[in-house]
Amino acid sequence: DLDEPLTNGEEVTVGLVDEAGNKSPEVGATAPDTTAPEAPTAEFNEDGSEVSGTAEPGSTVQVKDKDGNVLGTAVTD
């Protein structure tokens, strides 16, 4: 058990040491990402053909019209 839960994709290293002091190879583990991202920023270019902005890296951005139809999708870097 951890004193404070890790829930935002934090990475830890886990290894074992037996009674004789022998160490195992270490492995990595990544905590689940359970925190919703902040709202993205968005703005059109001058001719209205492109939307740009900022969002959490690795998130999928969808541009939708007023009826909820997806007009474009991108993964942020």
Score class of each variant (00 low, 15 high):
17 V>M: 07
21 G>C: 09
48 G>S: 02
8 N>E: 12
31 A>D: 00
46 E>L: 15
58 G>F: 01
32 P>I: 06
41 T>A: 02
71 L>G: 01
55 A>H: 00
56 E>W: 10
7 T>V: 04
65 D>L: 14
19 E>Q: 12
67 D>V: 08
71 L>M: 10
38 E>A: 14
60 T>L: 14
5 P>D: 07
41 T>H: 01
63 V>Y: 05
33 D>S: 12
59 S>E: 00
55 A>Q: 00
41 T>N: 02
41 T>L: 01
1 D>C: 08
7 T>N: 09
18 D>H: 10
55 A>T: 01
55 A>G: 06
75 V>S: 02
2 L>A: 12
68 G>V: 09
27 V>T: 02
45 N>E: 11
67 D>W: 13
53 G>P: 06
66 K>I: 15
31 A>R: 00
59 S>N: 00
17 V>P: 02
48 G>L: 01
21 G>Q: 04
43 E>T: 12
76 T>L: 11
59 S>C: 01
27 V>D: 00
45 N>H: 14
29 A>E: 04
67 D>I: 03
66 K>F: 14
22 N>H: 01
30 T>K: 04
18 D>S: 07
23 K>A: 09
19 E>F: 15
5 P>V: 11
14 V>N: 06
16 L>T: 04
6 L>H: 13
26 E>T: 11
57 P>N: 06
54 T>F: 01
2 L>H: 08
39 A>L: 10
2 L>W: 13
24 S>T: 11
52 S>W: 07
47 D>N: 14
47 D>G: 07
73 T>N: 08
60 T>G: 03
5 P>G: 03
11 E>S: 11
67 D>N: 09
38 E>F: 07
58 G>S: 06
6 L>N: 11
47 D>R: 13
66 K>G: 08
9 G>Y: 06
12 V>I: 15
